[in-house]
Amino acid sequence: MGTAQLAAVPEPKYWHLRTVLLRAITSEFATGEVIPNERELAARFGVARATLRQALDQLELEGRLVRRRGIGTLVAAPRVGVPVSRRDEGWPGGNREQVWQTVGCTVAPAGERLAGALGVPAGETVHSVRRIRVAQGQIVATEALHVADSALPALPEIRLSGAGEEAAEGAADGEEQGRAVLRRLERLTVDGESRAVELGVAEADEAALLQRPPGTPVLVVTTQYAAAGRLAALAVSTYRADTCRLTFGETGLVEVTPVPAAVRSAS
């Protein structure tokens, strides 16, 4: 294969403005302060309002700014430090319920993709527990915990809501379903676990639980738990990338301080 010189791609104007705005905001405003309105900012930086809105939208998407109806655009608070080590979260059963709140559970045959991830035949019954995580009064993450039925021998039969029952009663039953799965998991002994982190975007169901629009940037933490010589559970945790920074340390002796945006831009 031959080689070719790649032409330099010019930086979009709004992206350059986003960098300039971030430096100005970092140096001139404190957390919670209202920044000047669009007209003043457009005049200050000599740009069109449309370009300015693109830059502001990008900074809001990154969690640097937050818009409040009737108030204006404010400098957002620093990201919430969320510990995701096993010491802090624990095994899916037991103490983990103190960190994650169960909001529902579904029981269905596994499709090929989920079955492959769990190491079970396609069509095997899988219990999927849905949970949320709250930090400093806001929902910062949602989780789908998948457990194959064969990993939970003698799981008690769980009554499902009838079609004519009220939605509130159905939701309560879903929460109890999830707790029953967690209680059974609590009896297993963990042999080990593995984790992977990647950047993604919130799908519709996840976005609704996170109270954010679909497409919001998220950090996806996939954790596999092994017990009794097999994969026992698969947890897919979706964290808001605009408000969270994840910490993985086990000792708690090292505090990782976020690098200021101005320093990162100068690197």
Rank of each mutant, 00 (worst) to 15 (best):
T3V: 14
A7N: 12
A7F: 13
V9G: 07
V9M: 15
P10N: 08
P10Q: 10
P10L: 09
Y14F: 10
W15S: 11
W15C: 06
H16Y: 08
L17F: 07
T19E: 14
R23G: 15
R23M: 13
R23K: 11
R23Y: 04
A30H: 13
G32T: 00
E33H: 01
V34L: 11
I35R: 00
P36E: 03
N37Q: 11
E38Y: 04
E40R: 10
A42Q: 02
R44N: 02
F45R: 01
V47S: 00
V47T: 07
A48H: 08
A48F: 03
R49H: 10
T51L: 01
T51V: 10
R53D: 06
A55M: 00
L56M: 08
E60F: 01
L61M: 13
L61V: 10
G63K: 00
R67F: 08
I71E: 13
I71R: 09
G72I: 02
T73G: 00
L74W: 02
V75M: 02
A76P: 02
A77P: 03
A77L: 06
P78K: 07
R79V: 07
G81K: 13
R86Q: 15
E89Q: 11
G90S: 00
P92V: 05
G93V: 05
Q98F: 10
V99Q: 13
V103I: 13
V103C: 02
G104M: 05
V107A: 09
V107M: 11
V107D: 12
A108G: 08
A110H: 05
G111W: 01
G111Q: 03
G111M: 04
R113K: 14
R113D: 09
L114Q: 09
A115Y: 03
P121E: 04
A122M: 06
E124L: 05
V126I: 06
S128W: 00
S128G: 04
V129F: 00
R130T: 07
I132C: 02
R133F: 09
A135N: 06
A135L: 05
Q136F: 13
G137F: 01
A141F: 03
A141I: 04
T142C: 14
D149C: 07
P153D: 06
A154L: 07
A154V: 12
P156N: 05
E157G: 15
S161Y: 04
G162A: 12
A163K: 15
G164P: 05
G164R: 14
E169W: 11
G170L: 10
G170P: 01
G170M: 13
D173R: 15
G178R: 01
G178I: 01
R179E: 07
L185R: 00
E186R: 15
L188M: 12
V190C: 13
S194M: 14
E203H: 12
E203W: 12
A204M: 11
E206V: 08
A207V: 08
A208W: 07
L210S: 03
Q211S: 10
Q211F: 13
R212A: 14
G215C: 05
L219F: 14
V220Y: 06
Y225I: 12
A228E: 13
A228S: 09
G229C: 06
R230H: 09
A232K: 06
V236D: 12
V236F: 05
V236E: 14
S237E: 12
Y239T: 03
A241E: 00
A241F: 01
D242P: 00
L246M: 03
L246I: 00
T251N: 13
G252I: 03
L253C: 07
L253I: 10
V254G: 03
A262T: 15
A262S: 12
V263G: 01
